[in-house]
């Protein structure tokens, strides 16, 4: 199976984020990491390849810094990478990101495309499904298990409130992968070494420009959300905090 994994670099989970001067985006001087569900998507692609053979290709869009995500994927076992390298990709909406990806892979023939189920920055939860529609492929979302069958694949979709569903579908297909579908591997030293010789195809903005258009949605402003709740900070030494909390639990909340 030939699998493409769409990956994204996002700010680290506990990185302190600040707004830029125009309040249009965050200040970029933060630490980044791979979007967590994308890491599970990559892991799943490597496991499928180990079972069925084939190739794993990883793709991302973003400035030079985002190449780190591809390097890590190559070190874990991906065979090659595609980097749509330009800062302008950061500002694309899901519709245009999917269009740029579709344009970048138009000469490839994949059996499966994986994405994480959503990103930790925009959180659209749309790019994978849009890509499927642009390619004319079937899709399934929030996937917790993938098995190859005679006619295609059988996937396990996570539904809400603890429900699941198996779905049989033909290939090629796009799947959005849920965190926790598998256990992530670490890159090995030898993997890191080998990654240095694996190819990364760079795609400039100009190459896909004709495929993308104006964004269909616009972030007018970004801001720190107004608090709807009054939060009382409880401070002091751990022992003092414990005493204060117990007092609240007993006398204000009346749960003790």
């Amino acid at each position: 199976m030939k699998i493409l994994v769409c990956m994204k670099q996002v700010p680290q989970k506990d990185a302190p984020l600040k707004l830029n001067e125009a309040s249009s985006w965050i200040r970029e001087d933060v630490s980044y990491e791979v979007n967590e569900p994308d890491a599970f998507a990559l892991e799943e692609s490597l496991r499928q390849k180990e079972k069925h053979g084939g190739e794993v290709v990883v793709i991302t869009s973003g400035p030079a810094r985002s190449q780190q995500v591809l390097r890590e994927a190559l070190a874990k076992g991906a065979d090659r990478a595609i980097h749509l390298e330009d800062n302008a990709f950061v500002g694309l909406d899901a519709f245009n990101t999917a269009k740029a990806f579709a344009a970048a892979i138009k000469d490839e023939k994949f059996d499966l495309i994986f994405t994480g189920l959503q990103s930790d920055d925009y959180g659209y939860a749309q790019t994978g499904v849009i890509l499927a529609e642009l390619l004319g492929w079937p899709h399934a979302t929030i996937i917790m298990q993938i098995e190859k069958t005679d006619g295609g694949i059988k996937v396990k979709r996570e539904l809400e409130a603890g429900f699941f569903q198996f779905v049989d579908m033909p290939l090629p297909a796009v799947l959005t992968i849920q965190s926790g579908i598998n256990k992530l591997r670490y890159a090995t030293l030898i993997g890191i070494k080998q990654a240095k010789n694996k190819p990364i195809r760079k795609v400039a903005l100009a190459e896909v420009q004709s495929a993308i258009g104006e964004n269909l949605q616009k972030i007018e402003r970004l801001y720190v959300p107004q608090k709807t709740k009054k939060t009382e900070h409880i401070e002091g030494s751990p022992a003092e905090i414990a005493k204060k909390l117990v007092d609240k639990l007993r006398n204000e909340l009346r749960v003790l």
């Binding site: 959300p225 900070h233 751990p238 905090i241 005493k243 003790l256």
Partner: peptide, 26 residues
């Protein structure tokens, strides 16, 4: 913390054991 009524900024490993003790005492 945006939705918390009471916020404790600190290491949970420092906070929880004395809290458990206080609750038990109470």
């Amino acid at each position: 913390f945006e939705i918390a009524d009471f916020a404790i900024v600190g290491n949970l490993f420092d906070i929880v054991p004395p809290l458990t003790e206080e609750v038990t005492k109470a």
